[in-house]
Design a protein around this nucleic acid. Structure first.
Lengths: 112, 112
DNA sequence: TTGTTGGTTTGCCATATGGTAAAGTATAGC
DNA sequence: GCTATACTTTACCATATGGCAAACCAACAA
């Protein structure tokens, strides 16, 4: 699935920025409107909104507008998607490392 | 630690590209020289070397040059560093989700 | 020593990213 | 209705990214 790749692209790209990671950290603690989310950061709203948009298209957050305030929520399963990919890679690595250890074990006397 | 943030930046950024993720996948299977790594991709060596450089400065791979061939190795613990950050975030989320469930449980009759 | 191979460097280009300022829109409160 | 609030849009800018072509260098191989 080529689409999976694009999803991982945008997902990891969204995570590759301290502002965006901070927003995620903040939202883990509960939903919040744009203005409150933006407060801690030394940048204008337009710049901040771009970050939110990156986060939203990556699926890491979603948002709803009620009246004039837009509230943002986290989408925790996207986090686990990224975690999943990493875990898979590590599994491959560990599989190989284990086989390698077994090979060494089988062909060398134990060093103890 | 502000440096941790920069490390995560480069780490996630390195992962946010299908070529680079493919290289990682390939290297999990064992070390390989630059040329062999580059073969599957439809781009010139200079472009590919940039990807390798991104991977190397992120710490995800390392490389050694012997004679005229540079061999690349994976650095699996960097993968777990990224995994770690994600796991931490998920833990916060789950903690909150659990508390929320407990709250709902305590204030509402079970729906069964 | 003369190629050829494997990698590197240099210069260039198009596009994407991350930020600004300033003007615009729509709702909430008085 | 008037005004402040909470975004939103537009236009613009500097830098980073991802790619190319072409020249270059070092080390095997013949």
């Amino acid at each position: 699935m080529a689409n999976q790749q694009a999803a991982l692209d945008t997902l990891f790209h969204a995570l590759a920025d301290p502002t965006r990671r901070a927003v995620i950290g903040r939202l883990l603690d509960g939903a919040a409107p744009v203005k409150r989310l933006a407060e801690p950061f030394a940048m204008g709203l337009p710049a901040f909104l771009k970050h939110l948009s990156v986060l939203e298209t990556s699926g890491l957050i979603r948002s709803e507008k009620a009246g004039r305030v837009r509230t943002c929520y986290i989408n925790a399963d996207r986090l686990t998607a990224a975690e999943h990919w990493l875990a898979e890679q590590r599994a491959v690595w560990q599989g190989r490392a284990d086989r390698l250890a077994a090979f060494v074990e089988a062909h060398n006397p134990p060093t103890t």
